[in-house]
Simulated scan of single mutants.
Amino acid sequence: MHRGKGMKFVGDSRVPAERKPNIPKDYSEFPGKTEAFWPNFLLKEWLVGAVFLIGFLCLTVAHPAPLERVADPTDSGYIPLPDWYFLFLYQLLKYEYASSDFTVIGAVIIPGLAFGALLLAPWLDKGPERRASRRPIASGLMIFGVIATIYLTWESVDHHDWEAAAEQGEMLDEEEQQALEEVDTNAEGYEIYTDQGCISCHGDQLQGTGAAGPSLYDTQYDAATVQEIAVEGIGEMPADQFNGSDEELEVLAEFVANGGNPESGGGGNEEEGSEEEESAEDDGEESEE
């Protein structure tokens, strides 16, 4: 082939020695399609964030976080409830296949697969499409995850005993708090009360634990009735809960009947004691006459 025949020169492929300045495109050339990140786009983001922040602050002022009584580690009947964003996992752990011997499945494996799928999403779906209808795998997994989370959250809220929880967490007034402080934890009756496991249902200060056991520091039962209940049971309390000696049962009954402070008297014996005092005064007046 002769030089120049069958060849076309389309331009110089050599890199020019002089570089042109990197001038950004004028955004006015693309109206409605693009804008500058600073300050236009970033300013919009700040405005939206400020609106949500102010709304959230107003919500916290109008509806403050509910407070409950001081946490009691001995309260085995307390009904726990996690924050709303963990309710779906809380409900999942109630099912047979995700609790008891299978707790690892509900607490580790299933959440690990769910969050692992989110991390692996860029590799699981490499398609260039942006429409959800053209990305069936990614869209299906996301829809399934959202529906499962909403369903489990709803079930957790629906099955929770809100009345019992409110009763358990109710704040104590000054009189009740003062009564709790009067419980003599050094008394022999308190030691028996703890050893017999009464503390797990009725609290370390006889304050009760809601659904598990009622309060005892303001009981209206006398010592004899307390002994009978400890042996025969009452209501949801089964019989044969006390396994100590008769002397220990008497000490425990006196402790409970007197509101946790047998030295001062009170509780269920208060009315009985007042009646005895009145009868003694009447006998004294009759003897004087």
Results as ranks from 00 to 15, higher is better:
residue 3 R to M: 10
residue 7 M to S: 05
residue 13 S to F: 09
residue 14 R to M: 06
residue 15 V to I: 13
residue 18 E to G: 02
residue 18 E to F: 06
residue 19 R to M: 12
residue 19 R to I: 01
residue 31 P to I: 03
residue 32 G to S: 10
residue 33 K to A: 07
residue 36 A to M: 11
residue 41 F to I: 04
residue 42 L to C: 00
residue 43 L to E: 00
residue 46 W to F: 11
residue 48 V to A: 08
residue 52 F to I: 09
residue 58 C to M: 12
residue 61 V to M: 06
residue 68 E to M: 13
residue 68 E to W: 11
residue 71 A to S: 14
residue 72 D to L: 02
residue 91 Q to S: 08
residue 94 K to R: 10
residue 98 A to N: 04
residue 99 S to A: 13
residue 106 G to Q: 04
residue 116 G to H: 03
residue 116 G to W: 05
residue 121 A to F: 05
residue 122 P to C: 05
residue 123 W to R: 14
residue 123 W to S: 08
residue 126 K to R: 14
residue 129 E to Q: 14
residue 130 R to T: 14
residue 133 S to L: 12
residue 137 I to R: 12
residue 140 G to Q: 12
residue 146 V to P: 06
residue 146 V to Q: 01
residue 148 A to S: 10
residue 150 I to H: 03
residue 150 I to M: 08
residue 155 E to C: 07
residue 170 E to C: 02
residue 172 L to E: 03
residue 177 Q to A: 14
residue 177 Q to W: 08
residue 182 E to Q: 15
residue 182 E to K: 15
residue 189 G to M: 02
residue 189 G to P: 04
residue 191 E to N: 10
residue 200 S to H: 06
residue 208 G to S: 05
residue 210 G to H: 02
residue 212 A to M: 05
residue 221 Y to K: 13
residue 222 D to C: 03
residue 222 D to S: 12
residue 224 A to E: 15
residue 233 G to H: 02
residue 234 I to G: 00
residue 242 F to Y: 15
residue 243 N to P: 00
residue 252 L to V: 13
residue 253 A to P: 04
residue 253 A to S: 14
residue 253 A to T: 04
residue 257 A to I: 02
residue 262 P to H: 06
residue 263 E to R: 09
residue 270 E to K: 14
residue 285 E to R: 06
residue 286 E to Y: 13
residue 287 S to Q: 09
residue 289 E to A: 15
